[in-house]
């Protein structure tokens, strides 16, 4: 059984540590906020200028001046602070953000990431992703293992324009958890009931398998 988007987020939440400042990208990464363990102090950074992002507001309490980087209406939590975009990217560039979670179209087995452009088809832009991946100390990618055509998104080399080079540390997909090592992807965990062979067949980049690979337990 492959993981749902919620389960991918749930698995990534296990990487959180007490006292972390975390930037969550749009899509699956945003869901990680729902699985922060009770009692763990984690502060969410939104790169449009907020530390201490809270859940969506109650109906009728939306403030057009209070949004996240996905332009969604949000709230703040106790101890939150607003700042301008230069301060926001200053703290990112200075390595003060402990963990960045973002989506990707492709990841290479060197840790390169592509997630902002499909030449001739899609021109949305990189937003803050290039700044984040260039400076964050720990970058986890949340994505499907294959694209809608069934092709591997974990490649020997990215084919799409890059967002950043040699920066991704870990990838959580719908079927596996992988680390990026000097010799390519290392299979760390597999989704319940998904075989190592299936993961192997859906991974185009170099993949190392050491001993028995445990299933993710929920």
């Amino acid at each position: 059984m492959s993981l749902t988007k919620e389960q991918i987020a749930q698995r990534i939440a296990r990487e959180l540590r007490h006292g972390y400042y975390v930037n969550l990208g749009i899509g699956i990464p945003t869901l990680v906020a729902n699985y922060i363990p009770a009692g763990m102090d984690v502060v969410l950074q939104s790169e449009n200028g907020l530390l201490g992002m809270g859940p969506f507001p109650l109906e009728g309490e939306e403030d057009p001046d209070l949004i996240n980087a996905g332009k969604q209406t949000i709230t703040t939590v106790k101890g939150s602070v607003f700042f301008d975009s230069a301060v926001s990217f200053g703290m990112i560039r200075a390595g003060r953000v402990d963990l960045t979670v973002l989506g990707a179209m492709e990841v290479s087995d060197q840790g390169d990431i592509a997630n902002w452009k499909i030449p001739g088809k899609m021109v949305k832009g990189m937003g803050g992703a290039m700044d984040l991946v260039a400076s964050a100390r720990n970058i986890i990618v949340a994505m499907m293992h294959t694209n809608p055509k069934g092709e591997s998104k974990l490649l020997r080399a990215c084919t799409l324009p890059l967002t950043g080079v040699r920066c991704v540390k870990k990838i959580v997909t719908d079927i596996a958890v992988l680390e990026v090592t000097p010799t390519g992807f290392l299979l760390v965990e597999r989704a319940p009931g998904v075989s190592v062979e299936e993961i192997q067949s859906k991974t185009e980049g170099r993949l190392t398998i050491q001993g028995g690979v445990p299933e993710i337990v929920f």
């Binding site: 975009s85 990217f89 290039m130 700044d131 324009p161 890059l162 950043g164």
Partner: peptide
């Protein structure tokens, strides 16, 4: 986005340019 912000900041601070790691290798 951080480059956009900081290129504004540089102008406001009277500095001609900045160095940033964002976009290296892309």
């Amino acid at each position: 986005q951080g480059t956009l912000a900081t290129r504004c900041l540089a102008a406001g601070y009277g500095m001609p340019a900045i160095f940033t790691p964002a976009g290296v290798g892309t």
